[in-house]
């Protein structure tokens, strides 16, 4: 078990290293650099920048060094001082710009995962146990629908109906009185009151997917010999279902936890943009559109980190749940 965890840990570190390279490539990807961009922006505003001004900006942000130098400087800053670089647009260290947005994104992701599993597992079990009943068909249909509606559209629809029929907007993260207040329980509760809409929207697709997987696995497991054998030993009713097939069907569900988290984090920016939740998502979009690449890169790193840590935790969870994995036996 310890060996298993150490291997996974090592893989995780290597992955993080590669992620940093990919992120840096993306940072470097846009043609022209920030100085050019700024010059263009100024020009369109009617001002002019001299060649010297452009040169000075390059000098100031180290834009005239070689790619390798810049990568290692960037990485070294992160590792040694937690310095992710400077946001050109806000002219402040990236970490200060991001601030508590990381907390918001984490809360949103965790809440979404919680919703997903709380809803999906009971429904999945129900659908498998009551196969081909009205309830099963209804859930299957809703599931199909949940998989086909793009999340941003669902968010828009909710916005539309809430504005049209309740005259309140569901967007944002805090009521006005908590907007700039320091953290307190009341503020946290206020955040939950707002954030749940986004969490539900984000949870829909994952829930539908997990219901389908769970239903299929359970139907498969239910007819396996070890269940019949347990029945022949006198185990019956709920105990039989919950202890054997449901328990076994939980494993693939646990193993997808990492991917699920990845999907949630992947899908959250677009929903956050629509529902104007001030987490990392909208900031990421604006930083991309204005080519504020250190900010964008840092946000991408944090999103990847969340996924990687999530995958690591789900690997460990799976090892706890499945002795075959713990003991290193190929299934």
């Amino acid at each position: 078990m310890i060996k298993y965890i150490l291997t996974k840990l090592a893989t995780m570190l290597v992955t993080i290293f590669f992620v940093s390279i990919v992120v840096f490539i993306i940072i470097e990807l846009p043609p022209g650099d920030f100085a050019d961009n700024m010059a263009a922006e100024r020009a369109s505003a009617g001002e002019t920048m001299t060649q010297d001004d452009v040169f000075n900006i390059r000098e100031r942000y180290g834009l005239n060094q070689s790619v390798y130098e810049r990568y290692f400087k960037w990485i070294w800053g992160i590792v040694s001082r937690g310095d992710f670089g400077t946001s050109f647009r806000y002219n402040r260290p990236v970490m200060m710009v991001i601030g508590e947005r990381i907390t918001f994104t984490t809360c949103l992701a965790l809440l979404t995962i919680l919703f997903t599993y709380l809803i999906a597992i009971p429904i999945g079990i129900y659908s498998a146990m009551r196969q081909y009943t009205l309830g099963d068909y209804a859930f299957t249909f809703v599931g199909y629908l949940g998989l086909s509606i793009p999340s941003f559209l669902l968010a828009l629809l909710l916005l539309y109906f809430s504005t049209k029929y309740t005259n309140t907007t569901i967007g944002g993260l805090f009521s006005p009185e908590f907007q700039n207040a320091p953290w307190s329980l009341a503020r946290f509760v206020d955040m939950l009151k707002h954030i749940w809409v986004a969490a539900v929207v984000l949870a829909v697709a994952g829930t539908a997917k997990i219901i389908r997987t769970l239903r299929a696995t359970l139907l498969d497991e239910k007819s396996k010999l070890y269940v019949t054998a347990a029945k022949a030993r006198g185990v019956s009713g709920k105990a039989l279902l919950l202890k054997y097939p449901v328990r076994v069907a939980m494993n693939p569900i646990a193993s997808t936890l990492g991917w699920e988290l990845s999907a949630v984090i992947s899908g959250s920016p677009i929903v956050a943009v629509v529902l104007s939740i001030p987490d990392m998502g909208p900031l990421y979009l604006t930083s991309l559109l204005s080519q504020d690449m250190y900010l964008a890169g840092t946000l991408l790193i944090f999103m990847s980190l969340m996924t990687i840590i999530g995958t690591f935790l789900s690997d460990i969870l799976l090892a706890i749940m499945d002795p075959r994995i713990r003991l290193g036996i190929k299934i």
């Binding site: 010999l225 070890y226 054998a229 022949a232 006198g234 202890k243 328990r247 076994v248």
Partner: peptide, 25 residues
């Protein structure tokens, strides 16, 4: 009564012991 028949009065040995045991218990 059936629960008592199964396992207590009459018990069963299966053909494939591999799949007749739960893999997780």
């Amino acid at each position: 009564i059936l629960g008592n028949i199964r396992g207590k009065e009459i018990s069963m040995i299966f053909q494939e012991p591999m799949s007749a045991f739960s893999p997780l218990h």
